[in-house]
Amino acid sequence: MANFSVILGIFSYLDPGTGSAIIQALIGGVAAVGFFFRHHVRAFFAKLTGKSKKDDNED
């Protein structure tokens, strides 16, 4: 899920905050599971059943 190997300090002019970066990676890891399901698995079944994939940006 999260690979703790990048160093802080490479960012641009804004300080992202260590706590923010870490929680973001954790949430991102969890969110990726749901995201994968919604976008890929659903698209796969939609393709099987012939229904077009709903664009999440246009809900």
Partner: peptide
């Protein structure tokens, strides 16, 4: 001096945006 922070793949970044 340096604090380690996690890596985030493009997929994880898109997942956060989606969330």
């Amino acid at each position: 001096k340096l604090v380690k922070v996690p890596k985030m793949s493009k997929f994880q970044q898109l997942a956060i945006i989606d969330s």
